[in-house]
Every structure is written in C-alpha cells, then in structure tokens.
C-alpha cells in the first residue's frame, strides 16, 4: 500500500506507526500550507524509514526538502522559518545524530518566545526515531529522551501506538511552540491498528491510561509499553490487576493522572529503556515521593536500561528491559507489605 495515496478522511482498516505518521503529515500539509518538511533523504527516498514516502511527489520540492547532511542546520533552519511564520517539521534521521542540533534546541528553539517576550515564536517539530531492539548499527539504538525533558521551553512527546502517533503528531504540528517528537522505531512496523485519518489531534500534555487496574500502577512510554502491557496481562493471570499509564508527553508531565492512579493502587513501577540514572523515571519517582508519599504502600521501583554504553546488537537484548524484569519488579511491588 502506498500510504500517501490513501484518501484523507477514510477509515483505514489498519496502519502501522510509520504509515500513521505519514498520514498525519499528509493531513496536516493538506490543511496548512505553511507546513514544510526538512531532513536528510526525506524527499525522493521518503526517509530511511519511509515516514515521508510519497510526500515530495505530492507536495513538491519546496515543501518537502532534502537538506545537506547537517544536523545543526536541520534544527536551526526551522527556527528561522518558524519565526517567519512557517511551520517546519524537521526529521533527524536517527536520534544518535541529533547532538549537533542540541545547541539550536537549547539556545534558540526553546527560548525564542521567552527572550523576545512573544514577539518571535518557534512552532517547529523535530522528529527523530530512537531506541533499540532492531539490531541497528552503533549509535542507532540509544534512548536519550531524558536529556530533552531537561530542557525548559520545549515539549517532549513519544507515541506508543499508530493511533497515538497520528494524533499526537498532529497536535505537535498544530502547537505554537517547539516539540521534540521521538518515535520508538522498534514500534514502527510492529503492529497495525485501525487509525481514523480525520485530521484530529490527540491531546498533548496528558498521559493515556491504557489499562485499568486497582492493584498496581505501571508507568511507561514508547516502545517499553509493549513489555509493560504483556507483563500486565500476565499479572492479571496471577490475580494482580495493573493499571498501565502511557506518559506520552514527558514534558510537560501530567503528574495528576499518575498521582490519581497511585492514589488508588498505592504501588508503582516505572519502566523505561533509557539508562536508569537521570532517566525520566527518576523525575516521576521524585514527584511521587514529593506529592504522593502518603499514598504509597510500597517503594517505587524502576526497571530501566543499565547505566552503560548501549551495547552493539549481539548483547542488545541483555541491555533492554524485558518482560521478566518488569514482572519481577511488579511482583515485588505488588506483594510488598
């Protein structure tokens, strides 16, 4: 199927995450011609993951541009474009190559509104695939979302399903401020689900409750929700009903959904692929300690990647948290008294 050729508005029987992203971009570009796409190999090649497949043919080379190989530029160009009234959506080919762009994000995109007191703004989206699990070469598998969540003035959004990728990307594009949109590439083609291509955004700045339960709260985002939900299903077989929360927008964090859930369950495990220390789980655990301590019936646990350099593919599965680790932590937490 050529995702770009599907009719906007039609209800497709199934899309994977890449196709959902492609449809969201298409829908946004049809509705708003101030949207331009920038990035390496996003034109005729449709992006190395095909997220922009067919878009240059449809919207032309002015609106879908291949840039030279230069990540500082890919983050910096949109700042200029956005300040001039465009809505750039730029793609960093892999998160591993985003680091030259950090200067632009920290020093410019994130603070243009603040430093000009709203005279100039920066409605840009920077998309980047991230995370492990696809046996990719060196530097292609890390999860460094916490670094971005540390930066004041940007939003950090991570979808965990095709439908949320579709709706959240539309929300990110419509948003008047900069959004770092991190796409868990392990999920790109993992699963298809019906996605209504109606151009409707999903709310950012909100967690999504993926499963109701009253015994324990499992908090995660991105690719690790797969293992988290698997663990929740297995826990159900053991008589433990887990509530599963997809954080989705790391910054700003919707802590109240998490606090409400933990208020009900009294127990919480946070699961992420990124290294433990300074990972975004630390922020959630700290907020629970600050704001939810009296509701807690057990210590908060974190299941995370090790504090090591991400191994090359042969040992990758020994780095990424697996269902067993999630289950072990959840069992300990659920049975703690």
């Amino acid at each position: 199927m050529n995702p770009a050729s599907a009719d906007p508005g039609s209800t497709d029987t199934g899309m994977n995450m890449v196709e959902a992203i492609n449809h969201a971009l298409t829908s946004a570009m049809v509705a708003d011609d101030s949207i331009v796409l920038l990035g390496e190999d996003i034109g005729i090649n449709g992006g190395v993951f095909r997220a922009t497949d067919g878009l240059q043919a449809r919207f032309g080379k002015d609106r879908v541009r291949d840039t030279p190989l230069s990540e500082a530029l890919i983050a910096g160009l949109p700042v200029g474009l956005a300040a001039m009234g465009f809505r750039p959506v730029a793609e960093i080919q892999f998160m591993g190559f985003i680091y030259p762009a950090i200067d632009q994000i920290v020093n410019h995109a994130s603070r243009l509104r603040t430093r000009t007191r709203g005279r100039l703004t920066c409605p840009m989206v920077l998309r980047a695939p991230f995370g492990g699990g696809i046996h990719a070469p060196e530097h292609h598998s890390e999860s460094m979302e916490a670094m971005f969540a540390h930066i004041p003035g940007i939003r950090v959004v991570i979808p965990s399903s095709p439908a949320r990728a579709y709706g959240l990307l539309l929300a990110a594009i419509a948003n008047p401020d900069p959004v770092i949109f991190l796409e868990p590439k392990r999920l790109y083609r993992a699963r298809r689900e019906p996605v209504t291509d109606d151009g409707r955004p999903l709310p950012m700045d909100h967690c999504f409750k993926l499963r109701e339960g009253s015994d324990i709260t499992l908090v995660s985002w991105g690719a690790m929700l797969k293992e988290t939900i698997e663990a929740a299903d297995m826990l159900a077989g053991e008589g433990v009903e887990a509530e599963v929360i997809d954080v989705a927008t790391l910054k700003p964090l919707d802590m109240s959904t998490i606090l409400d859930s933990v208020g009900k369950t009294g127990r919480c495990v946070i699961i992420h692929e990124a290294p433990l220390t300074g990972g975004f789980g630390a922020e959630i655990a700290a907020r629970l300690a600050c704001e939810g301590l009296m509701q807690l019936l057990a210590p908060v646990e974190r299941v995370a990647g090790w504090d090591t350099v991400m191994p090359l593919p042969r040992l990758e599965t020994r780095y990424l948290p697996n269902v067993e680790r999630v289950l072990a932590a959840a069992r300990r937490t659920a049975s703690y008294s």
Binding site: D41, V48, D66, P68, L69
Partner: peptide, 9 residues
C-alpha cells in the same frame, strides 16, 4: 549521500 546527490550538498 544515501539518496542525496553530491550536487545537492
């Protein structure tokens, strides 16, 4: 450079 020709760099 993958799909980007030298002339576009």
């Amino acid at each position: 450079s993958i799909s980007v020709p030298r002339s576009a760099q």
